[in-house]
């Protein structure tokens, strides 16, 4: 991926330094430093309970870190509310899909646009078909324009994930946080979704940070990987480096029985 490598040299969209958080005496995250560049896909992997979710929640303002700084293109985000951080260009998708089931697909996307346009306290204008053109455009990007008028509640799981992606891209974020984006999907759907996310990230110059347990996805789609264990970063590098790191193998990857595209099970 020479294309991506060229990007990684680009300016960091998000720089995290010395990020720390303790819960009731337990150090959940400790002195975490990393950067994500525009157009780069950075995977954050690690065992359950390593502090990945805490990291994510600190980045988008849901949890306030004890120490450390999170800078978006040089601007400090720590201390700002989730809404403020979102407005500055940090989008997020969730592990379990979170959409508005009482709205159509197009309305789900239009909702973001209304929020971005600060129209949510308009009591008398009509919201029906509002921002529809822009919403359809976003849906087209993720291949969902054809289902724009279906209710979100009846979509297949993979399609919901695409809608979430469109929603996350709605306010033209500079950084996109994706929490286990392919959890619960079939192998081919996983590859398709991450391929789409990677293509959009590269096209739109969005920095993507994602967590994932499917190593096949991580090794094939991440430009760079960082590994978190017990709240601390223990490794950083490309797929090859991570795959052969003894500490990562011991704490996370194991013997490689349960992943690996090139290995057939029971080989």
């Amino acid at each position: 991926m020479s294309f991506a490598e060229a990007r990684t040299a680009g300016s960091p969209a998000l720089s995290v330094s010395g990020l720390s958080k303790a819960f009731g005496g337990v150090q959940a995250v400790k002195d975490v430093d990393f950067q994500v560049a525009e157009g780069e896909l950075l995977a954050l992997i690690g065992p359950n309970g390593a502090g990945k979710s805490t990291c994510f929640n600190m980045l988008n303002g849901q949890i306030r870190p004890d120490r450390g700084s999170v800078k978006l293109s040089g601007e400090e985000l720590v201390g700002r509310s989730p809404a403020q951080i979102w407005r500055r260009g940090v989008g997020r998708t969730f592990q379990i899909t979170a959409t508005f089931p009482s709205m159509t697909v197009a309305e789900n996307v239009a909702m973001v646009l209304m929020s971005q346009a600060r129209e949510l306290f308009s009591f008398t204008r009509s919201a029906v078909n509002r921002h529809r053109a822009k919403a359809l455009q976003l849906l087209d990007m993720v291949g969902m324009a054809g289902q724009a008028d279906r209710p979100c509640g009846v979509l297949a799981y993979g399609d919901l994930k695409r809608v979430e992606l469109a929603v996350a891209l709605g306010n033209e974020p500079r950084v996109l946080l994706m929490d286990e984006p392919t959890a619960g999907m079939a192998p081919r759907e996983r590859v398709e979704l991450m391929g789409l996310a990677a293509r959009l990230a590269h096209e739109l110059d969005v920095a993507v940070l994602f967590t994932e347990h499917d190593m096949d996805i991580v090794f094939s789609h991440a430009d760079r990987i960082i590994v978190l264990s017990r709240g601390e970063l223990i490794a950083e590098g490309d797929a090859e480096q991570i795959r052969s790191d003894p500490l990562v193998l011991k704490t996370y990857l194991g013997e490689g029985q349960v992943y690996g595209q090139d290995k057939k099970p029971k080989d």
């Binding site: 979170a98 306290f121 308009s122 204008r125 919201a127």
Partner: peptide, 19 residues
């Protein structure tokens, strides 16, 4: 109105609405 939509959004998924 946009207000009603925004309100319904908080009802449907507070997680997503906040995000």
């Amino acid at each position: 109105a946009p207000f009603g939509y925004g309100l319904r959004a908080t009802r449907d998924s507070s997680l997503r609405a906040a995000a």
